[in-house]
């Protein structure tokens, strides 16, 4: 079973590798940012998949990743606003 999990995880790794193309090509920054988003999600999945082979601690790593994976994107959308500290939803948009 563990083998199956690892195969699945390997495939996920390759999936992310494919997505690097999007990060490299863009064209917009949002596109690139999505790459990071995908990597975080895939990372959580991979950690979950390999956790049965190790300690439950790995799930905590996944948890942390799940919690903090989105933060870079938040920083990005804020920084992308006019003064760098706004909110894309503000009326000024």
């Amino acid at each position: 079973m563990i083998e199956a999990y690892f195969f699945a995880a390997t495939v996920l790794l390759m999936t992310v590798a494919v997505c690097l193309v999007r990060v490299l090509r863009g064209p917009t920054r949002a596109d690139r940012m999505m790459g990071a988003q995908l990597a975080a999600t895939a990372g959580v999945a991979i950690l979950a998949l390999i956790s049965p082979a190790g300690s439950p601690a790995m799930l905590d790593v996944a948890l942390v990743l799940a919690l903090l994976g989105a933060f870079a994107a938040v920083a990005f959308v804020k920084a992308a606003t006019i003064d760098g500290a706004g909110d894309p939803e503000e009326e000024s948009q």
Partner: peptide, 17 residues
């Protein structure tokens, strides 16, 4: 948690773009 974060952030990115 992942879903929550992803759904929220995707909206933000969508709005940002």
């Amino acid at each position: 948690l992942t879903m929550l974060a992803a759904a929220t952030v995707s909206q933000l990115i969508a709005r940002s773009a």
